[in-house]
Nucleic acid binder design. Structure first.
Lengths: 226, 226
DNA sequence: TAGACGCTTCGATTATCATCGAGGTATGAA
DNA sequence: TTCATACCTCGATGATAATCGAAGCGTCTA
């Protein structure tokens, strides 16, 4: 009966609206201060502090002290993955369907998932580079082909840098809106950073939306969704 | 702020211990009656009924009436996936670490995940058939190679049968214990069924453990983990 | 040193929800 | 019909936990 990990404990933590909002706010990978998270959660700082204490104890978030601020970030990639999985279920569940707010279509199109691109464009990116044979499945891991490595160099992504990290280079991540995979891992992260650098896209403040400029989107589609 | 699906609602549902236990009991894909689920959850039937009503409304479970019984099963594959993701986080979280009960190692080695094989042996199966080039990634979906199709026929798996279903043939599923992918989809399901048929393994009653006989395990490793 | 700021801890209040007894409604058996 | 089973609904009870005011503790600025 009591087999496997204690799933109810962590689910209950995410089950509180205030905490859920905080976690979702952290889902883009950037760290936020306790007061900012209180704002995101729609509660006072005292309440938020209590919540953060619990999340911290369960390792769902981490902290870095910096001066008189305390920066909280997500506990890890598996936490992000779990949250996205929850969204996948929540999206198609309940009689109280999520009413598609004004931001919804934008989120569906392109958003940040921890530190890489998700949404329609994220899926297009992944499928594009698969179609161009820049990536190949080799056994368990996805790996860059020779052609892929050349492409990255051309695209000003320093592979040597990425490979020094202990983090896997390529990884699939399931998209809750598109229900398809997109590219995660350090390479996914590097791609997104490059899009920012090139001025193709930028983050919309205080949301997970990634806004592509019209020229940026054209360039993006040109490269990857040919 | 209020962007994306209502994650707290579903998390709160899973957050109750009784409901969590019920869901975990359903994770192996077989349907259970309301009374059986009450037992699994450690509550009376009235309480269980209340819980099941909520889970049903949120589509986390489904029902089939059959005579005077009501068979509940998991709402879908995405629900199963979410639960596994939660386990992944719960496994490595909290100061109250899960104490590895007697069943734990067995669960880690081989268990049922909805309807296919998970755990170490599940991962070995997947990696084995990848290594043998029976599967290939083609764009977005994983597909059987010609060699793979021949293998299945030899292994007495009726592909034509499987392909009539609307369900995808091959699919990856992330393992919470091994943190690697294993094979899901109707093919994953067919493989497991075949292992039962061959007498290589059988289910341990009222648990998710899949017990391989010693000869069965040898045959399994011979084929897939060569 | 004083004061402002960011955050946490403590304590009291309140609302939510799981729980189960009692009673009600289908289904199946005798 | 009558009884038993499987399940659900209703209502009362109780425990848990979210919430915020007040107060305390570091840290930065002047």
């Amino acid at each position: 009966m009591k087999s496997g990990p204690d799933i109810a404990r962590v689910a209950a933590l995410v089950g509180d609206p205030a905490r859920a909002n905080m976690l979702t706010a952290l889902l883009d990978g950037q760290a936020l201060t306790a007061s900012e998270l209180a704002q995101e959660g729609g509660v006072t700082v005292q309440t938020a502090s209590s919540h953060l204490g619990k999340l911290l104890q369960a390792r769902l978030v981490g902290v870095r002290k910096q001066g008189r601020h305390r920066y909280y970030d997500l506990g890890g990639r598996d936490v992000a993955h779990m949250l996205e999985a929850l969204m996948g279920v929540a999206a198609g569940a309940g009689p109280t369907r999520v009413r598609p707010g004004p931001k919804e279509p934008a989120l569906r199109k392109a958003r940040v998932c921890y530190d890489h691109l998700a949404g329609d464009l994220g899926v297009q990116l992944y499928e594009g580079i698969r179609r161009l044979k820049l990536l190949a499945k080799d056994g368990e891991a996805i790996a860059l082909t020779r052609k892929g490595r050349r492409f990255c160099t051309d695209f000003a992504i320093d592979l040597a840098d990425l490979e020094r990290l202990r983090r896997p280079l390529c990884r699939e991540c399931l998209d809750w809106s598109a229900r398809r995979s997109h590219l995660a891992g350090s390479l996914g992260s590097a791609f997104l950073a490059r899009f920012y650098d090139l001025g193709w896209a930028k983050r919309v403040p205080s949301s997970r939306v990634v806004a592509f400029s019209s020229t940026g989107e054209k360039a993006f589609l040109d490269r990857f969704a040919a």
